[in-house]
């Protein structure tokens, strides 16, 4: 499985809210939807938890470690600080 984004690539987390459309199991935190970050590294490929949770056949998806500037997300943060979060490829767009 070839990763779409290389380490260092700026990415945007989709501003999508499947929770509003019905039952779902999403591993992308609310606080990151619509936010931009940078790929830190590729972690591998794992079965899509959004299907696994409902016992559906789950295709493998590439998982990334994505780094976000802390104050852009939380205004009470400090500019030196970051959040490092696992995000699946289908939640990311080129920024």
């Amino acid at each position: 499985m070839t990763p779409r984004f290389a380490p260092g690539t700026p990415v945007l987390v989709k501003n999508d809210w499947p929770e509003e459309r019905g039952p779902c199991h999403i591993r992308t935190p609310h606080y990151l939807r619509g936010r931009s970050g940078r790929v830190e590294r590729v972690l591998g490929a794992f079965p899509n938890p959004e299907d696994l949770a409902f016992a559906r056949p789950a295709e493998k998806r590439v998982l990334y470690h994505v780094v976000f500037d802390q104050p852009a997300i939380f205004t009470d943060g400090v500019p030196t600080d970051h959040l490092l979060v696992e995000i699946f490829e289908h939640w990311l767009e080129a920024a």
């Binding site: 794992f46 802390q70 600080d81 490092l84 696992e86 699946f88």
Partner: peptide, 12 residues
């Protein structure tokens, strides 16, 4: 010192 908060959201 840079602080990195690692949110363990998926398979690792």
């Amino acid at each position: 010192v840079e602080l990195r908060v690692v949110d363990s959201t998926a398979d690792f």
